[in-house]
């Protein structure tokens, strides 16, 4: 089940070999644009660039397959909400009419705008996920001084969550075998939710104490300067690419302020 693994795809590509910090810089850049930009052209360009990067990372096909699945409903609902009701618009101009339904020109534009905008945000995270081995992500953050304990939180989460999801699946199967209805009316399904989740929650919370001991005896609270088994090298290319993200960010901010 795909849900049980991280969606990283192991490939030997330029994008894979980049220091994860480079990809963090891309994510940050797109997040800033997402928060402050109102330009549809800009978001379309961002979408295209990320798509090209996905192909450069040899994950182009998986990228498209996954992305279409995610942004399909977004474009659909976006065009529906904005095309039909144009809540952000002022113009009454109609793009086309279908019986009593009017799709407004401005609403249609907003529909596409939010579609591309959201798609850009999803794309950049998706590219990161597909091409970054999670272990390297934590190591790279540690290398630039992120707290060791934060690294523990991320790695432990990545290990514990699949275990718990597997447990969830086992419990679902076991309860189904005992006749618990996981299909049918909504009240039935809601009724199934509690007996399924309860044991997982209780069982896992009871184990926290033992894990606390395990952490303590490994010097988790030690005040010594932490060291790392692995370090992520930052190559010249990595540095240049991070610098590029920063420059693009500055250019964007300058244009926003002037324009």
């Amino acid at each position: 089940m795909a849900f049980l693994k991280t969606n990283y795809i192991k490939k030997d590509s330029v994008i894979h070999s980049l220091n994860p910090l480079v990809k963090f810089s891309w994510v940050s850049l797109v997040v800033v644009l997402f928060l402050f930009s109102g330009s549809m052209t800009l978001f379309i360009v961002v979408n295209i660039i990320i798509l090209l990067l996905a192909f450069l990372g040899k994950v182009g096909r998986d990228f498209i397959k996954g992305l279409v699945f995610m942004i399909g409903p977004i474009f659909l609902f976006s065009l529906m909400i904005h095309g039909l009701f144009n809540p952000f618009g002022i113009s009454e101009e109609v793009l086309f009419s279908f019986y009593t339904i009017n799709i407004s020109l401005e609403g249609f534009y907003y529909g596409l705008f939010f579609g591309f905008k959201i798609s850009a945000l999803i794309s950049v995270f998706y590219l990161f996920i597909l091409t970054t081995y999670p272990g390297r992500m934590v190591t790279s953050l540690r290398t630039i001084g992120f707290p060791h304990k934060l690294g523990f939180l991320v790695n432990a989460t990545l290990q514990i969550v699949p275990l718990m999801l597997r447990e969830a699946e086992t419990i679902i199967d076991a309860q189904r075998a005992r006749g618990l209805e996981t299909k049918g009316s909504i009240t039935k399904r809601l009724g199934a939710y509690v007996p399924l989740l309860g044991p997982i929650v209780l069982g896992s919370v009871m184990k926290v104490y033992e894990r606390t001991i395990a952490l303590e005896v490994r010097g988790f609270s030690s005040t010594a300067d932490k060291t790392s088994l692995y370090v992520e090298n930052i190559t010249l290319t990595d540095k240049l690419l991070i610098a590029l993200s920063v420059v693009l960010l500055i250019i964007y901010v300058v244009f926003r302020v002037i324009g």
Partner: peptide, 18 residues
């Protein structure tokens, strides 16, 4: 502890901490 994604890293955890 779950701190390392591999056995090697799990063993390393105590050393990193100290």
């Amino acid at each position: 502890t779950g701190a390392g994604l591999t056995i090697e890293e799990e063993v390393a955890f105590g050393l990193e901490n100290t």
